[in-house]
Design a protein around this nucleic acid. Structure first.
Lengths: 156, 156
DNA sequence: GCTTGACCTGAACTATAGTTAAGGTTTTAT
DNA sequence: ATAAAACCTTAACTATAGTTCAGGTCAAGC
C-alpha cells in the first residue's frame, strides 16, 4: 500500500493483485488489454485508484459467467469513463449478463435433457434420435444447414 | 466414398468430414490427438471404418457439454479398443457426461441467482454481498482460502 | 547507504482447439 | 492418358487467457 496523502491513497500492482485474489501478471494483462488503467509514479511504477477493486470484482464475476474478456472490456468501455462504476452501472451490466447466463443455462439444460433421453435409446444408431437431429445445430448452421448424415440410409 | 468390396467400405477423410459436419483438418487433428484412428491405403491415404461416424458423433456431443478433448479421449480409451462403441458404451459415457453437465448447470444457476440478488443491492460495496463472499470460490481455493478483500474495512 | 523485495519491459512459452499454407503425391473421372 | 480433385506432411498461425523468464530499475526497512 502506498501512502500519498490522507485522501489519495493509491494501490500498487501487488496490492491490487493480493486484494483481488489475482496475479500481478493478470493485472498487467488486463491493463494491456485495456480493461483497466493506471497512472505511474516518477519511477514508472503503476498506481491504481481504489475504484480498480470494484472494476476487477465486476470483471471476475463476468468471467465466471463465461463472458470473454474482450466483451467485458467492451461493456466496461460503455460506462462513464474514468469513474468508479456505480451501483447503477453495475445493475445494467449484471442484468445483461444474467440474461446471457440464462440463455447458456437453457442451452445446456436442453442438451442435458436430450442426453438423458438418449441414454437408454440405443442412441446414435436410430434415425430419429434428438442428438442426431439437433435443432440447435440446424439453427446455428444457418442457410444450407441440413440434417447431419452420420449413418447412411443403407446402414443396418 | 471408397469401394473396396461388397462388405468392407471405408471412408476417406473427406467423406468423414462431410458426413460429420466437421472439417478435414479437424479429423486430422483428432487423429493426431489419438481420439480416432485409421488405416492407410498403399498410397498413404487415410481410410476410416464406418464406426468412426458414431465415435465422432459421441465426440461432438461431449464437446457440446463442454468437456475438453483430452478428457473425451481418455473416456473413449476406456472403451473396448478397436471396436465400434456400442449402445451400452454410449449409455455409460452419456450418463457420466450428463452428470458433469448437471453440475455445471447447477454452478451457473447458483451464479445467476447470486447475480439476480445483487442487481438491486448496491452490490460490490456492501460487505455481505454474496458475490463478494462467494462460497464457491472459497471451496475451490482450498486450504488457506480466505474472504476476498476487495474493499478494506476503512472504506466508507 | 545498502540490501532485499517489489516493480518494470519485452519476449517467449503454456494450454485448448483448431486452421491455413506450402509443396508434393494419389485417386478419380473423363 | 491426363487433368482435376482430393489427399499427404510439416510448420506456422489464429484466438483466448494468461504465466514465466531475463535483465534491469525502484522503493523501503534496517
Amino acid at each position: 500500500m502506498v501512502e500519498v496523502g490522507p485522501l489519495q491513497r493509491y494501490l500498487s500492482v501487488g496490492d491490487v493483485a493480493r486484494r483481488c485474489g489475482i496475479s500481478v501478471s493478470a493485472v498487467h494483462f488486463y491493463e494491456r488489454k485495456g480493461l483497466i488503467s493506471s497512472i505511474r509514479t516518477d519511477g514508472n511504477q503503476r498506481r491504481f485508484h481504489r475504484g480498480i477493486l470494484r472494476k476487477l470484482a465486476i470483471i471476475k464475476v463476468a468471467q465466471k459467467t463465461g463472458i470473454p474478456l474482450a466483451e467485458i472490456g467492451a461493456a466496461l468501455d460503455k460506462l462513464p469513463r474514468n469513474t468508479v462504476p456505480t451501483a447503477e452501472d453495475w445493475a445494467k451490466l449484471s442484468s445483461q449478463w444474467r440474461d446471457d447466463l440464462n440463455e447458456r443455462i437453457d442451452q445446456l439444460t436442453r442438451l442435458r435433457d436430450q442426453l438423458g433421453q438418449c441414454i437408454g435409446c440405443g442412441c446414435l444408431s436410430i434415425s430419429d434420435c434428438p442428438l442426431r437431429n439437433p435443432y440447435d445445430e440446424l439453427a446455428q448452421a444457418g442457410p444450407g444447414a441440413r440434417l447431419l448424415e452420420m449413418d447412411e440410409p443403407d446402414t443396418p
